[in-house]
Measured scan of single mutants.
Amino acid sequence: SLEELLKLARHALRHGEEIHVLDRVITDEHEIKRLIEELERLI
Rank of each mutant, 00 (worst) to 15 (best):
S1H: 14
S1F: 14
S1M: 13
L2Y: 10
L2N: 04
L2K: 04
L2W: 11
E3F: 11
E3P: 06
E3V: 12
E4C: 05
E4Q: 11
E4A: 12
E4G: 07
E4K: 10
E4P: 03
E4S: 09
L5N: 01
L5P: 00
L5H: 02
L6A: 02
L6T: 01
L6M: 04
L6H: 02
L6Q: 01
L6P: 00
L6K: 01
L6Y: 03
K7I: 12
K7N: 11
K7Q: 13
K7M: 12
K7Y: 10
L8S: 07
L8E: 10
L8K: 13
L8M: 11
L8H: 07
L8Y: 07
L8P: 00
A9C: 02
A9P: 00
A9L: 15
A9Q: 01
A9N: 00
A9K: 00
R10T: 10
R10Y: 15
R10G: 05
R10K: 14
R10F: 11
R10I: 15
H11R: 07
H11M: 06
H11T: 06
H11P: 00
H11A: 08
H11N: 08
H11I: 06
A12P: 01
A12W: 02
A12E: 01
A12Q: 02
A12L: 02
A12I: 02
A12H: 02
L13H: 04
L13P: 00
L13K: 02
L13W: 05
L13D: 02
L13S: 03
L13T: 01
L13A: 04
L13G: 01
L13M: 05
R14M: 15
R14K: 15
R14S: 14
H15W: 12
H15P: 01
H15R: 07
H15A: 09
G16M: 04
G16L: 04
G16C: 03
G16N: 09
G16Y: 04
E17I: 14
E17V: 14
E17T: 15
E17G: 15
E17K: 15
E17R: 10
E18W: 10
E18H: 14
E18S: 15
E18F: 11
E18G: 15
E18C: 06
I19T: 02
I19V: 13
I19D: 01
I19L: 15
I19E: 01
I19Q: 01
H20L: 11
H20W: 12
H20I: 14
H20R: 15
H20G: 04
H20S: 09
H20Y: 09
V21R: 02
V21C: 07
L22F: 15
L22E: 11
L22S: 11
L22N: 15
L22G: 15
L22D: 13
L22T: 07
L22C: 05
L22P: 05
L22Q: 11
L22I: 08
L22W: 15
L22K: 11
D23R: 01
D23M: 03
D23I: 03
D23L: 03
D23G: 11
D23K: 02
R24A: 07
R24W: 10
R24S: 07
R24K: 12
R24P: 02
R24H: 09
R24G: 06
R24F: 09
R24L: 10
V25S: 04
V25Y: 08
I26E: 02
I26Q: 01
I26R: 01
I26W: 14
I26M: 07
I26T: 03
I26Y: 15
T27V: 11
T27I: 09
T27S: 14
T27W: 07
T27F: 07
T27K: 14
D28G: 15
D28E: 12
D28K: 10
D28F: 07
D28C: 04
D28V: 06
D28S: 13
D28W: 06
D28I: 06
D28Y: 06
E29L: 13
E29I: 14
E29W: 12
E29G: 10
E29C: 07
E29F: 13
E29N: 08
E29K: 15
E29S: 14
E29D: 07
H30M: 13
H30Q: 14
H30K: 13
H30V: 12
H30Y: 13
H30L: 13
H30E: 14
E31L: 07
E31K: 05
E31M: 08
E31V: 08
E31I: 07
E31N: 06
E31P: 02
E31Y: 05
E31F: 05
E31D: 11
E31C: 05
I32T: 02
I32P: 00
I32Q: 03
I32K: 07
I32R: 01
I32A: 03
I32W: 02
K33Q: 12
K33N: 07
K33H: 08
K33Y: 09
K33V: 12
R34E: 12
R34C: 06
R34T: 10
R34Y: 08
R34V: 10
R34M: 14
L35M: 06
L35N: 00
I36P: 00
I36V: 07
I36W: 01
I36F: 01
I36N: 00
I36G: 00
E37A: 13
E37Y: 11
E37S: 10
E37K: 12
E37R: 12
E38W: 15
E38A: 12
E38V: 13
E38H: 14
E38G: 06
E38N: 09
L39P: 00
L39I: 10
L39V: 05
L39R: 00
L39M: 04
L39D: 00
E40Q: 08
E40G: 04
E40C: 04
E40I: 12
E40D: 05
R41N: 08
R41M: 09
R41P: 01
R41H: 09
R41Y: 09
R41G: 06
L42P: 00
L42A: 08
L42G: 04
L42I: 10
L42V: 07
L42N: 04
L42Y: 07
L42T: 06
I43H: 04
I43A: 04
I43E: 03
I43Y: 05
I43N: 03
I43V: 08
I43W: 05
I43T: 04
I43K: 03
